[in-house]
Design a protein around this nucleic acid. Structure first.
Length: 153
DNA sequence: GCCAACGTTGGC
DNA sequence: GCCAACGTTGGC
């Protein structure tokens, strides 16, 4: 079992959106970056644990926990010309983009702010915190996961 | 294959 | 809104 962090802009799809989805489960669509795609297509497995991160907002940070509920499969939004995530270069025969289903497990009482994460010496190697990191999906180590949970209570 | 130009991300 | 950092595109 592996640990991950997935970013989303709360004005587009935040943790409260996921909470209202049927069975609190939803396909994580719209990722259009090859490294992140590869992680969803090749590495993420059902049962993997995920931090939900809010980016591009007043207080960027980790807002809850999710669980991966599917293998990677093609991102169907790329096939729909009317969809905002449409990509004419992806087709059914050779899909370019992939996603996984995620289920909300827990919304934290308070956001764990990015600024607080940056203050933690033990998190200095965390992928999220590396200079220039823009990946919307990053792996989290078991130690990082456990430590961050202690910040969530 | 190089690399300039351009687009996007995302914190501040 | 600014801008640093990075990814992608496409001419050559």
């Amino acid at each position: 079992m592996q640990y991950w962090l997935m970013k989303s802009e709360p004005s587009v799809f935040g943790i409260d959106h996921l909470a209202k989805c049927v069975n609190q489960t939803e396909p994580w669509d719209g990722v259009r970056n090859y490294q992140s795609r590869n992680m969803m297509r090749d590495e993420m497995k059902p049962g993997d644990q995920v931090f939900f991160y809010h980016s591009n907002c007043d207080v960027p940070g980790i807002v809850g926990q999710m669980e991966v509920k599917s293998q990677g499969y093609p991102d169907f939004t790329a096939f729909d010309p009317g969809h905002r995530y449409f990509d004419p270069k992806s087709d059914l025969d050779k899909p370019r983009w992939f996603l996984v289903d995620v289920k909300l497990k827990r919304k934290f009482k308070r956001t764990i702010p990015l600024s607080l994460l940056r203050e933690q010496a033990v998190l200095k190697d965390m992928k999220l915190l590396q200079r220039g990191n823009r990946l919307s999906i990053t792996p989290v180590t078991k130690g990082e996961w456990a430590f961050i949970l202690t910040l969530a209570s």
